Amino acid sequence: MPGVHSDHGAMPNEDWPLVDRHPQKNGEGWLLKEQEQLIVCYRNAMPLAHAKSIELETRPMRGSKAPVVRRMLLHNAIEVWTHIQKTGWKRCQPRW
């Protein structure tokens, strides 16, 4: 069970691995880049669980600037997800 050590009981929430604190829900994943004040949401572009198309929606954390929405193939979206995490993007809770 995530967040539980057999010899210490339950761990405080802040000690859980980030992936456990912000699990993906319904095929969505969220990343935040605080330095640039941007959030991106990855979600299935099709209702099927095995969708081959992913929608990426990027929004500013503040202000009224319009979101940027893109669609890409699943394998490309996975590559982008991995790459941008290496450049400072962090998993976060859903924001909208």
Rank of each mutant, 00 (worst) to 15 (best):
G3P: 05
G3N: 08
V4S: 00
V4M: 00
H5S: 15
S6T: 00
H8P: 00
G9I: 07
G9V: 01
A10T: 05
N13A: 08
N13W: 11
W16N: 03
L18C: 12
V19R: 11
R21W: 08
P23L: 04
Q24W: 14
Q24G: 15
K25C: 04
K25I: 06
N26K: 14
G27N: 08
E28V: 03
G29I: 04
W30E: 02
L31M: 10
L32S: 12
Q35A: 03
E36M: 14
Q37G: 07
L38R: 15
L38N: 07
V40G: 03
C41G: 10
C41N: 13
R43F: 06
R43M: 09
N44V: 00
N44E: 00
L48N: 06
H50A: 01
A51E: 02
K52Q: 13
K52A: 07
S53L: 14
S53D: 11
I54L: 08
I54R: 03
E55T: 07
E55D: 04
L56T: 02
R59C: 03
R59T: 07
S64A: 02
K65I: 01
P67S: 05
V68T: 15
R70D: 07
L74T: 07
L74S: 09
H75L: 09
N76G: 11
N76H: 15
A77S: 14
A77F: 04
I78W: 05
I78Y: 08
E79P: 02
V80H: 12
W81A: 13
T82W: 01
T82K: 15
T82H: 12
T82F: 06
I84Q: 07
I84Y: 11
I84R: 06
Q85W: 14
Q85L: 13
Q85G: 15
Q85N: 15
K86M: 08
G88D: 06
G88P: 05
R91A: 13
R91Y: 12
Q93L: 10
W96I: 00
